[in-house]
Amino acid sequence: MTSFRILSPALLRCLGVVAMIAAIIAVFTALEPRYASYGNLSAVTRHMAANGLAALGLTFVVVVRRFDLSFPGIASLAAVTIGFLIASGYGLWFAIAAGLAIGIPVGLLNGFAIGYLRLPDIVVTIGSGSIAAGLAFLYTGGQSIFQNFITSGLLDLNDTRFFRINVSAYFLLAAYCLAGLVLHRSRFGVALYATGENPVAAHFSGIRVRACVMAAFGLSAATSVLAVLLLIAESGAANTNHGATLLMPAYAGVYLGAALLGGASIPATFAGTLVITILLDGFSLLGLPYYYSDGMVSGILLFGVVVFDPRVRRQLRRLAASVLPIAPNSEFRS
């Protein structure tokens, strides 16, 4: 902290991320001029909406230092529930409410088992995710549901535009603003961070640690239901493996963002999801086969976690110091 600096490290990181995104877009545009077209950029916002929502809920779980592997299963169950109700002639809003009403309790049960009964998070969420994914087969035995989808107004969630931008993009922005207020500008958000940092200290400070953990898992389930709702609106059919596609991008979004901005937060998740979405979109526009996309997301995630991990960075700094004894320290500071 000896060097004088005008910009705070946080602002510097933000500027770095913006520069990185600009550089990615510039490279793709140079390789494929269609990248900067209106059609493609609006596809980016649409793709980002579903992944961004799933990552949003996961952020809360990561903030309380837990893992949730159940949200793909919960999303599949909710997808088939919503599809089944719409196919049976119920209204869109009723179906969405039912999807949430079936997904959120599963998340709260996870949170109860992990927060109150203190069971290990990974095991419990693998188990409950498996149960939820199994229950998703109860409706049709695994077949896609698409009856009544056009007349119900479900597809409008994907197709409607305001000012030439998809309604799902507004939806995503609204969700992120709301989540940002909750996590960064409310007592509850501070309690979540305290729970993650030091549950014992948080407990003695009067924070209801267990309730915080339970709430985080409930939020994760809720946003995964909303994410899968956008997925079925985009594909026009609900099936049992819709949820599984959410797992990788959600984890990559949260952890890449946390690596880029130095900790899990709502802006970090937004940045992480945005970087991953524009990269994936660019590669698919360049004609890369679909089966590379998971590997690509995984590679980006691994790269982000390795390069931005404080321990790895410290070692890099030590390496740099030994190679260049007079290298200015400030360049490598986090």
């Binding site: 797992l247 990788m248 990559a252 590379y292 998971d294 590997g295 997301v297 995984s298 995630l301 691994l302």
Partner: peptide
């Protein structure tokens, strides 16, 4: 999770 994703793609 990440190395598994890379293996699946490979």
């Amino acid at each position: 999770i990440a190395t598994g994703g890379i293996c699946a793609s490979a």
